[in-house]
Nucleic acid binder design. Structure first.
Lengths: 339, 339
DNA sequence: CTGAAAGCGCTAACAT
DNA sequence: ATGTTAGCGCTTTCAG
């Protein structure tokens, strides 16, 4: 029966209160509440302390604890627009879960890509004595590292900065492109179009490289005429449909799910059926799109959750960071009904 | 010229270091770094301290500060699946921004709706001496309040618990439904179908009430035959299209954007054009859907960002909470091209 | 104008 | 087996 000791704002119950009530010293209390290894505590004292804790509703003050131990349990996560972005929010989720698993709590800051806010955020984290910082982007790209980040351990997540010496963890775009293409190949397609993005990025080059390598591994020559760069959105996909159809391809690999969404529109307009007339596969696995298109869209997932989790692991040294090279996280296929 | 004092993990620079270097006492340092109101500090001493701060790269230790002042600057946000959910992540974003504005930092915990995790999360926050907790849901609904929440100030965000006595802030579903309907009315439609959800919820009843009230205000009788409850997703919208078409309606208000997405498919299949043959308006403003459909979807936005911000304001007492009744936040129309 | 000193809640030797 | 004591980094009276 808890007598709600620390209710609301009445000065919180401290260790001293517990000590007094149970008739022992604070250090004894400290030992029992922390279940210290070499804890030589009498059976009776221990019980009394536990009862007092229960009765007063005592909660340790983590802040005091970290002050005294000199080591905080915070991990900072600065995000440009992650929280703003649908699926990329999983980075936070993954980091959160992994951090907790190791007894750390996440301090998240959304900067909206604003450099000033970013500096404030980092300063704030440093003032909170974070164990380290995860600096992340909502899409895979090269970034330039804010000066302040060098004042603590930092890991780049879903972004990288060659030459900065900072460890990074990013999606394996090439393997993703290969996986998508292989999926199409596995369904017997030989003439596969690729609606790539017009935007220079690791995704652009990586996915293309994967597409080529899958083709080559299957003994199919790379035909430049089958690749068309389009705006990486619904409009681009819609516009690119004619090229795909004219090229005589029986399947198309779209740079992302939004492009695929546009292709759906284009194909439908021409009375072509998916996947019978043309099979389509996307990339990103944006749930709101992929799972709700008709037919549902087969695609390759960006491993956001895993990126966040891996970032934390690297920061904590659980997972040693590879030298120099960013660590690659696999992009798994998500099979639905468009192939 | 900063001589990077606190680089990496070398014992952080403390106030004492600054005091020593500038030849004053810690209390003086404290006064100048905090720019204390009644700060009678000599021009010279002040300068020396500032130089020392600069030179050593001193950063106050917030944890020590809160310990000493007894008042922490954390606000907890426990979310069921918000971070997991596309647009609802804006609740976090809004809360974050507003918290910062007042000098607080957010401690976010995703619980995935797991009660045990939830209890842990709340305990964690209490141990971090949070100023209060924002308990939020990823969609508007009634929840039952975890016991532990009563140990601190808490605000319910995008959810409510009648009789719990806890202040809540939720979207104004009825006004939203009215707004959507009015938009259709403004474009001359008189026969407006409503594809509502089959799921009992504040959204279901609220939006319906708004629909009716807009109709009545326009002198149009409510026709039950125009309202069809469907599964609140793409499939439901697709299936409901025939009812809409058969009813002879020239416009349809969809319970949410996913339903609208299905209606798009259904309409297209029948060769009907949007908005010429049938005008469509959604609800939720799920960006990935609404902004990328063709034509782009007019809809009503769920004010997630504002819910988060309002929650923080209520918690901090900036915005007094209305008694008993949840505070309603308006759902603004987002006009695009489907009406 | 500035400094000494007493805490904030907790941990960690060191005594007993 | 348990208590004492000295901090952790900072704020805040209260004296000089």
């Amino acid at each position: 029966m808890t007598t709600a000791g620390s209710s609301k704002h009445g000065a919180a119950v401290t260790m001293r209160d517990v000590a007094k009530l149970s008739g022992v010293s604070v250090s004894t209390v400290s030992h029992v509440v922390n279940d210290k290894p070499g804890a030589r505590i009498g059976k009776d004292a221990r019980r009394r302390v536990q009862e007092a804790v229960e009765q007063l509703g005592y909660r340790p003050n983590v802040l005091a604890k970290t002050l005294s131990r000199g080591t905080s349990a915070f991990i900072g996560l600065v995000a440009d627009e992650i929280a703003t972005t649908p699926f990329a929010g999983q980075i936070i989720h993954g980091a959160q879960d992994e951090a907790w698993k190791h007894g750390f709590v996440l301090l998240v800051a959304n900067t909206d890509g604003n450099a000033a806010v970013e500096d404030d955020a980092i300063a704030m984290m440093l003032e909170h004595q974070v164990r380290g910082i995860l600096y992340s982007s909502w899409y895979h790209r090269e970034i330039s590292v804010p000066e302040a980040l060098h004042q603590t351990d930092t890991i780049l997540v879903d972004c990288f900065a060659d030459g900065s010496g900072l460890p990074a963890v990013v999606p394996d775009e090439e393997q993703g492109g290969r996986t998508a293409t292989e999926e199409l190949l596995a369904h017997g397609h030989r003439r596969i179009a690729f609606l790539n993005t017009t935007t220079p990025s690791p995704a652009q080059t990586g996915r293309l490289a994967g597409y080529r390598s899958a083709l080559e591994a299957a003994g199919i020559g790379f035909d430049p005429a089958l690749v068309l760069p389009v705006a990486p959105d619904q409009g681009g996909g819609y516009a690119g449909t004619s090229h795909v159809v004219d090229s005589g391809a029986s399947a198309v690999f779209c740079h992302n799910d939004r492009v695929a969404m546009g292709v759906y529109d284009g194909l439908r307009e021409r009375g072509l059926r998916i996947p019978d007339d043309v099979a389509v596969i996307g990339f990103d696995n944006q749930d709101v799109i992929a799972a709700h298109l008709r037919p549902t869209l087969s695609t390759v997932a960006l491993p956001h959750y895993e990126l966040g989790a891996a970032g934390v692991r690297m920061l904590l040294g659980v997972d040693p960071a590879p030298d120099d090279e960013p660590r690659l996280v696999a992009c798994p296929p998500v099979l639905r009904h468009s192939v």
